[in-house]
Structures are given as structure tokens and as C-alpha cells.
Write a protein that binds this DNA or RNA. Sequence first.
DNA 1: TTCACGAATTGATGGTTATCGATGGAATCG
DNA 2: CGATTCCATCGATAACCATCAATTCGTGAA
Lengths: 112, 112
Amino acid sequence: MKATLPERVKGVCCPPSITVPPARVDASVEVLKALADPTRLQMVGVLKRSTRPVCICDFTAAFELSQPTISHHMAKLRDVGLVEMTKVGIWAHYRLAGHLEPKTRALLDVLV
Amino acid sequence: MKATLPERVKGVCCPPSITVPPARVDASVEVLKALADPTRLQMVGVLKRSTRPVCICDFTAAFELSQPTISHHMAKLRDVGLVEMTKVGIWAHYRLAGHLEPKTRALLDVLV
DNA sequence: TTCACGAATTGATGGTTATCGATGGAATCG
DNA sequence: CGATTCCATCGATAACCATCAATTCGTGAA
């Protein structure tokens, strides 16, 4: 194994070429940050499994968090395009976005 | 569409059942948080593409960040088991972990 | 119009995180 | 040995984030 390594010389580094386009990285990081929270990941899991939109008040009842916090988390998921909302009367119904990028959908399939 | 929705009654919520075990969610969130950073996601991408371990000094040369910051990011990736390290002389060679969980590997295949 | 209810926004707070400079340890070489 | 190089850790700071209480907004009902 060691034989396969190049002879490294002090003071000489081999900066790897950045192959992933920074724009793509930033886009991925945006989605990852939205999912990197227990509450939000659970929310996405619920929405992915639910056959019909879920009301904010239902989430407030399910998680032990205040309504503003739930709303804040949902806004974050909405900002990155993961979920969509419909208002029905005084209720807000959330569902997984219908036009997710294939990569994003694959991500969700792995995660939740 | 509206017809398929249940008749919602004021003050009555339908808390969705939490189907994803909290322990699994927490484990996923740990990995997601490690990946939800541009620098670290780039690092993982480089390591995934590289046929041989990459030196810390190479990353320091590639990214415009200080050496302690690079080291800190690598430690974070190491803490969640995404990468492994081997010391060769004074150099630290990093590589993607060999025994990644299938789900984690699938995650990386989608991302980088 | 007035009231009640669900949801979003605001402001504040405590906790986490990214970053750097400085320090110290380990290995190598003269 | 002493000097050099690479790396990890520590301490500090600034930025960010999750959370809640209070308020505001929008809708529907009385």
C-alpha cells in the first residue's frame, strides 16, 4: 500500500483539482442544511409518506414545539423548494414539492 | 382535490404518526450536518474521486482556508465516520471510510 | 363590524459553529 | 542536539441558528 503512494517531498503539496462545480456544491449544501435538523427531517418524512397534505396544526400537535417554531421550520423547507403550501380556509396544508429535481428526490428516498 | 380532503373541524388536529424512529433520524442528522458545509462537501467529493489518500496539506493548498480550519473540518468528517486517516511520516493521509453503511454510501453517490 | 381561530412574523435569547492565531506534539533532517 | 515541517488542539471571536413569547395578519363566523 505504501509503495503505491507517491514520494512526498517536504514543502510540496499536490492540491487536488476541485471537480465539483462550486455552484452545484452550494445548491446541495442549501438542501442539506434544510434537512440537517431532526424536526425538519421528521417533517419531510411525514410529508413523503402522507397521501394528502398535512396541516400545520397537525405538526404542532405531533411535535412538542411551539407553533412559531413549526412555522419557522416549514418556511425553511419551503425556501429551498422541498415543500409546497396550499391555504384552505384558515388552514395551511403542506405537501412535498411535486417538481423535485431527480437528485433531490433520490436524496429523500435514501433518507426518509 | 379539495373533495378528497377530510372535513376539518376547528380546534381538532390530526397529529401524524411519527414513523421514522427518532434514533435513526438523529443518526442521519449527524451525517447531514457534517455534509452541510461547502468546504466539507467538496472535501468528501475529492476523497470519493481520488484513487489514493489525500494529504491535509493538499487541502490547505486547494481551499483558501487556514490549516487549523481544514483540520477542524476533517475532524468533523472523521467524528461521524465518513473518513479515515493514516499517518505517513509527518503527513496525515485521509480517505473515504471503507466500511460505510449502504445508506450513507448511497447518500454520497447522490451528492458527490 | 366584531370576534375567534390558525398561521406567519418579529424580537430576544441561549446555544452552536466557522474561522483564525497561537501553541504544542511528532517526525525528519542536518 | 537544534531546526524545520506538518498537523492537531486550544482560546477567542463573530456569525449563525433554534426556540419561545408576543404580536400581527388573514380568514371565517356571529
